[in-house]
Design a protein around this nucleic acid. Sequence first.
DNA 1: CGACGCACCTGTGCGC
DNA 2: TGCGCACAGGTGCGTC
Length: 281
Amino acid sequence: MPELPEVEHQARALRRILEGATIDRAEADRTPVLKGTTTPASFAAALAGRSFEGIERVGKQLLLAFDGGAGLASHLGMTGRWRVRAGDEGPRHGRARLFLRDGRVLDYVDVRMLGRLEIVPRASFAAIVASLGPDPLRDGLDAERLAARIGGSGRPIKTVLLDQTVLAGLGNIQVTEALFHARVHPERPANTLTPAEIAALAEGILATILHTLAVHERDEEIVYLSDRTDAPNPFLVYGRVGEACPRCGKPITTITIAGRTSPHCPRCQRLTRSDLRRGRG
DNA sequence: CGACGCACCTGTGCGC
DNA sequence: TGCGCACAGGTGCGTC
């Protein structure tokens, strides 16, 4: 569920919460969330008594650094989140928890357990960062850079943008919104985009990330948009199939690409036979 | 290399 | 009211 803006929102919240904090005790349940060699026992042992030294986010990865060279890599998957406990009782679907010296408890909550927690040496953070493409928010993005990343790939632009080694942090919503901004059909072969379209896409990527982040930052706490069923849909086309395109009024339609729903405007985001032919050739 | 299905998981909402 | 199914903002594997 979380994409770059949600993960950034979490990173900022965790930075505030953990500033100057020490972990007295840590627990993780035996669930598929624990990856690699991490077990409930090694999770507890690696984090007990550690003081927090920093957090960085790259793409959808959260990397927490502690003293003594210890690190915690946290990927939220579809439904993961960190939250500070309000009462004594742990939240539903809590999978791990950090008991801070000042009495607060930080819970890792993950309904579907598609997220990941892994104890890794801080020294390995660089390798994780290196395995991902540039992060639009951290590293910036412009037309030239995006063109270089897309390269000559004839794959659908949507598939390319979802590839975390091309750009880090984009997910189905952000890609959907960015393509709408740039008026580019999700199935357009990446190598058929004009320089103007690539420029518009770079702009669209940054615009949708900043917009989504701003919506999240209205909440001090870690709250997901989907938590608030009362809140209006903040997106232009995502979640709006059948509604009128905000630009031209034509109903938003959807197709499936790489197994993901891809809402788009059939008029603003055209795909021609010639595009497909040029992409293959 | 790339497209595709499937697996990993649970919860929710919708149609019958 | 209940059941079954499709679907959900992610990733990684095996297979053709």
